[in-house]
């Protein structure tokens, strides 16, 4: 069966999102692998469910974390997208929003947190620090972007990113989840290096 997935986000047309090429490439790869009809339909159903209930891990090291709290609060309200159930334990979380600077001392801890999360799991790099080291790029104790230690799915630039940017980044992740194949791999082999730019 040919997979012709175009992930839908309510009220925002597909074309208005940036970086659709990455998604199209993902779909192409899926097609090369081929899918069974029954599994394909089940996949869609599961992905629909997964993408609307991504549970983030409460992980914040610095300034960006405060903006994350603002996104969780009443005005920006991430509950509208199904992300409001922030988990304190990595074992119950689907996505880790790395908000804040990651230092050398923190890096192994972050890596361990990531490894404790159950598959399928996603990483969003929030803010200049997590994307590339940001204002602290020249520091001797700051990791120059979390993609050095974790496979990142979505990058949200900004210092700190506005709450709207958080939401946009989360929607990009939803779109990515929607085109994925749940049975048999979740595109695991692809989970390395830079993939998507929000």
């Amino acid at each position: 069966m040919e997979v012709t997935k175009k992930p839908k986000i309510k009220s925002i047309p597909y074309e208005e999102f940036k970086d659709n090429e990455t998604l199209e490439q993902l779909v192409k790869q899926l097609n090369e692998g081929g899918t069974n009809v029954v599994v394909g339909v089940l996949d869609d159903l599961i992905d629909w469910g997964r993408s609307n209930s991504l549970w983030p891990l409460t992980f914040a090291t610095s300034c960006c974390g405060i903006e994350f709290m603002a996104v969780c609060a009443a005005r920006y309200d991430i509950a509208r997208f199904g992300f409001e159930i922030t988990r304190n334990s990595p074992r119950q979380a689907d996505v880790i929003l790395v908000s804040g600077t990651i230092t050398h001392k923190m890096a192994p801890v972050l890596r361990r947190l990531y490894e404790q999360m159950a598959d399928p799991k996603y990483v969003i790099a929030v803010g200049g620090c997590a994307v590339s080291g940001g204002p602290f790029r020249k520091s001797y104790h700051v990791v120059q972007g979390v993609d050095e230690i974790l496979p990142v799915d979505v990058y949200i630039p900004g210092c700190p990113p506005r709450p709207e940017a958080f939401l946009y980044g989360m929607m990009q992740l939803q779109r990515k989840v929607k085109v994925e194949k749940f049975f048999g791999g979740v595109n695991k082999t692809k989970k390395e290096g830079k993939e998507e730019q929000a």
């Binding site: 090291t61 610095s62 300034c63 405060i66 804040g100 600077t101 230092t103 001392k105 923190m106 801890v109 204002p135 602290f136 020249k138 520091s139 001797y140 104790h141 700051v142």
Partner: peptide
């Protein structure tokens, strides 16, 4: 030390107007 960013050391190679930017990120509240 889990968020030690070496700001004071960085300051030594920044010009004065540049050092200002990092103070906001110390105690962001």
């Amino acid at each position: 030390g889990y968020i030690h960013r070496g700001i004071e050391k960085m300051n030594e190679s920044l010009t004065y107007p540049q050092t200002l930017a990092l103070t906001d990120r110390l105690d962001y509240l």
